[in-house]
């Protein structure tokens, strides 16, 4: 299985100009990713770390003020290498939903309130396939049945469905044409845990049925633990650690990842969880050196001035931290 999407030194900034004052928010700064065909790739991090911005750029659906100032996004589709920046509007529209699709946040109202569910499906299907209304209805009915959704939602209006059902219908709507590459942005947020479970199971089913690639963005490490094969941890627009899910959960190396994992509640211990000290930095003036140094209890002098590089500390385990780097060099010296 090869790479399906990659980014090389991607930088995407929000550049705004108001009353002559230019403001640049470095939401995605120098990120390099390789996502394999058929895997579930999780992107985690706290609010404001650039997760959704990264997704917008990966999806090639962004508008000013968000601007890609450096690097590239490359798709590998059907053996063809496509640079997102060179894609024509037509090619782009052609890829959407058939090849690349997007599942929005559970709290978003993406279903037209005055249109029956089946008509929304027809709108989305007929935009990409030459089908009659009855053909799309049949396609929709079969797909919903496969996913275990009641057939009566077809004739319903969105307001008649519960939040969880709406999100499941949205997932079905996003994946009805069996896209190869599915982006999901906080698909379980704003749903209660019981409903979350069902939605996670459904995402799993959808992904496994055709072996699609799922890029899952959420701040909820629990959801990642359930779904993702690999996890990338984002902090202040930077990729700070990337490894297989198991490794991230059991052997996190970057101090920020450790804080994230340690703050998870567990059934075994009932003690109070520590929160990460401080708050995330403002991205219009990010800290010098390692962006985490202000909140990091292990910070050394070098962390304040020099930006750590992303290095492979174990097979397929990457992290960007001076402390880890130094530990490793000591270990190898001994």
């Amino acid at each position: 299985m090869g790479t399906i999407i990659e980014t090389n030194n991607l930088r995407a900034y929000y550049i705004t100009k108001a009353y002559g004052v230019e403001r640049t928010v470095k939401a995605v700064d120098d990120i390099t990713l390789r996502i394999q065909e058929g895997e579930v790739y999780g992107i985690a991090g706290e609010s404001g770390c650039g997760k959704s911005t990264l997704l917008r750029v990966l999806l090639n659906a962004y508008e000013p003020p968000l601007t890609v100032v450096g690097g590239e996004v490359i798709y590998h589709l059907d053996g063809e290498r496509v640079d997102a920046a060179d894609m024509t509007e037509e090619h782009q529209r052609d890829l959407r939903w058939r090849t690349i699709s997007y599942i929005p946040q559970g709290s978003m109202h993406v279903l037209n309130p005055v249109r029956r569910i089946r008509d929304s499906f027809h709108d989305f299907i007929s935009a990409h396939r030459d089908v009659s209304k009855s053909e799309s209805f049949e396609l929709t009915a079969n797909y919903l049945r496969d996913l275990g959704l009641p057939e009566k939602v077809m004739a319903s209006y969105p307001h008649q469905l519960s939040g969880g059902m709406r999100q499941r219908v949205t997932i079905a709507l996003a994946t009805i044409l069996w896209p190869k590459l599915i982006f999901a942005d906080e698909p379980t947020t704003a749903l209660d845990v019981v409903v979350q479970r069902g939605v996670i199971q459904m995402l799993k089913d959808v992904q496994q049925k055709e072996g699609s690639t799922l890029i899952l963005i959420t701040h909820d490490i629990g959801v990642h633990a359930n779904l993702a094969d690999r996890i990338a941890i984002l902090y202040a627009g930077k990729l700070v650690e990337e490894a297989a899910t198991q490794t991230i959960l059991e052997n996190p190396r970057h101090p920020y990842t450790r804080f994230l994992i340690e703050s998870l509640p567990s059934l075994d211990s009932r003690e109070e969880r520590l929160s990460i000290p401080g708050r995330p930095p403002a991205l219009d003036r990010p800290p010098s050196g390692c962006r985490f140094h202000e909140r990091c209890p292990l910070a050394m002098d070098i962390c304040k001035t020099i930006e750590p590089a992303l290095i492979e500390i174990a097979p397929k385990h990457f992290t960007a931290c001076h402390v880890v780097e130094e530990e490793l060099s000591h270990a190898s010296a001994v």
Partner: peptide, 11 residues
């Protein structure tokens, strides 16, 4: 949201 989503889906 629903207009943005339909635009994204190239309806």
């Amino acid at each position: 949201d629903y207009v943005q989503y339909a635009e994204l889906a190239a309806v």
